[in-house]
Every structure is written in C-alpha cells, then in structure tokens.
Design a binder for these strands. Structure first.
Lengths: 147, 147
DNA sequence: TTTAAATCCGAGTAATTTAATATGATTTTC
DNA sequence: GAAAATCATATTAAATTACTCGGATTTAAA
C-alpha cells in the first residue's frame, strides 16, 4: 500500500505554499526546481487543487499560486482527497453486487476500519502543524550545531 | 490509496480457512469458486502465504490448505505484509538521497504517522476477531429473521 | 495399480493505471 | 511588445497489476 506520486508531490508542494503563506505567490517552475519534479506534471496537480478550491492562481508574469485558506484550515486529508480520490481500501465497501457472499460482512468491516484509521490521521494534521513541526526541528538542529 | 487484489483476495481466502479451522483442508478450487476469483491467480497468492509460513499445504487428492497457526495468532498485518509487502506510504521514509531537501523532515513525519496508523489497526485484528464478528453478525441477522 | 484431484513452479501476456511529455492558447507584468 | 506565468487538453511511455497457461509432482481413493 503506497501513495502515488500525485499525493506525495501534492502534499510537498502544498507544504511549500504553506511556508510561503502571506508572501508573494510561488510559481510551479520554482517548486518543480526545488523538488526536482516535472514542471508539466506539477501543473496537472495544481489544476486539480485549484478546481477543488485549495489554491488560488495568479496568472501572468510574476504570478503563481497561493493557498486559498490559512494553513491551519487545510488538512492533509483535503489534499489527498483531491489528488488520490477518496481512500477505498476495497471497492467492496460500496459495491453491493459481489458482496452478497459469505465473507461479505467480515472483510467489509475490516476495510472500513483501515480506511477510518487513515482518514482520522490525515484529517487531524493541518499544513500549519507540518510547518510548526518543521520549524521546531530546524530549531533543534540549530541548537545542536551551536554546541 | 487502495489495496491491490493480492491483499484483498488473500485476506478473504485466509478468512475462509479460519472459518474452516480444525476441519479438513480447503482446496484452492473451492475457495476460487466461492469467491469467483481466478484459480491460477489464487494459487500464486497461496504460494507466497505458504513460503511465509502462514498456511500449510496438503498435496494430492483431497488435499488443500490449512492455517499453520490458530486464527487467534494470525493478524491481518501478517497477511498483508506477505502479499502487499510492507506499507511504505512514501519511499521517502528510507530513501535518503532525495530527502536532503527543504521539506524532508516535515513530510517524512507525516508518512510515518499514516503508516503507523495502518499498521496499528491491522496488527490489532486477528482472523479470530474477524470470525467472531462474522458469527455475531449472523446471529443478529437470524434473530431479526425470527421476528 | 491406475486415475483423478490436488499442489507446485515458472514463464508469459493482457489490461490498467501512473507518470510524464508536449503543444498551443491565454493572461498579465514590466 | 516581450517575457513569464497559468490554463487546457491530448498523447505517449513506463510500470505495475492481474491474470493465464503448461506441465511436473504428489497422494488419496477406486
């Protein structure tokens, strides 16, 4: 079980925007250079994020993207939901046709438990949390360096 | 984020063996018929499960597979680990090369949290739990039917 | 002792999804 | 007007997943 690059690249890119929040917009080009990700590919991801209302684009020269909301109001769940679609551990959860089988209920319950667990974690973490974690880690690193 | 058929079929098949635990072995053919899964494909999955020590094969006519351990000692984690490999939400967790970037620590921590959450759930659920859930659900259904 | 039912093993292929690329249009700042 | 950016859509490449196939071996039962 693994996230696709859509989700991974997307979260990283959104994290960059969170670090930049309140300042000038970030262009796709600069994000793709920092992270060594294909520019064209990132463009597709931002198209989805924009349509979902998570980022706002500023067109033209010196343009780019900014978060549509403060980092504290955007969760990892929001981002992954847009880029990876809802987490469906098994299609069995909603597909009734194949599910009139003997094992239906038992495995269905399992898939739901796994899904809920992931959703709970991703809904509980905001971009602000990630920025705070990042800053406090940097602080520790700097203190160590000073010793 | 979704489990592949390896994990889904595998858990369902292991659940069948758990229901059957203590009785005669179950053949791949009978499992594949009950669940409408390709016989050849299931065979591959059982090859992995056997090599991992989760099931024991009985060759020859009237043969099949049985669980190597009681259902209470086999977790969903054990099964998924064999069939899907360890859960790595992002390769970033162990791959150092790409991770000397600015966002390294922040997203890495996130992937670890998601992974741990899934592992915690799957390690906490045994085949016995699933059988018990299944039986109690059946009981409720039967009571309702009687009313 | 033969037959049938089963596992075992490895190779090969089809289908699907993911990832990336490309092109051209539009917008906006300088 | 030139340059820098988003926007939109189509196409291709790569990788993974799902499945199929053929034949060898083992063993219970007729």
């Amino acid at each position: 079980m693994k996230l696709s690059t859509r989700g991974r690249y997307g979260v990283k890119a959104m994290f960059e925007l969170a670090l930049q929040y309140g300042q000038e917009p970030l262009s796709i080009k600069s994000i793709s250079e920092r992270q060594n990700i294909s520019e064209y590919y990132l463009e597709q991801l931002f198209s989805s994020l924009r349509k979902a209302g998570l980022v706002t684009s500023i067109r033209g020269a010196q343009g780019g993207y900014v978060l549509s909301k403060p980092p504290s109001e955007i969760t990892v769940y929001d981002i992954l939901d847009v880029l990876e679609g809802p987490i469906e551990i098994s299609e069995c959860i909603e597909d009734d046709e194949n599910c009139s089988r003997i094992e239906y209920c038992a495995t269905r319950l399992l898939w739901i438990k796994i899904r809920d667990s992931v959703n709970q974690v991703t809904k509980s973490i905001t971009l602000e949390d990630m920025v705070n974690d990042y800053k406090s880690m940097n602080l520790i690193t700097n203190i160590k360096r000073g010793e």
